[in-house]
């Protein structure tokens, strides 16, 4: 099924959790935060949310800034 992750269309397996996708992308789940269909998630929620067809996901993290 297809989702939109950080503005790009992406194919993910059914029953993929947000934590699962973060790991699949080679990212550290401890440092990434997700906005799922416009709602900011607490990090603890990532492993309990299954991605649906057409889900819009933003994966964000801290970068250098002043």
């Amino acid at each position: 099924m297809k989702i939109i992750c950080n503005g790009q269309e992406r194919e993910v397996a059914p029953a993929t959790t947000i934590t699962g996708l973060i790991r699949e992308l080679g990212l550290n789940p401890e440092t990434v935060v997700a906005e799922h269909n416009g709602r900011v998630l607490a990090r603890e929620e990532h492993e309990f949310i299954l991605l649906d067809e057409g889900a819009v996901l933003e994966l964000i993290r801290f970068v250098g800034g002043g």
Partner: peptide, 19 residues
């Protein structure tokens, strides 16, 4: 120290400078 928040660059995901 201040930090900013940005979308993860999925083409260069290893670039986690805050580590």
């Amino acid at each position: 120290v201040t930090v900013a928040l940005r979308r993860v660059d999925l083409d260069d995901p290893g670039d986690d400078i805050m580590r």
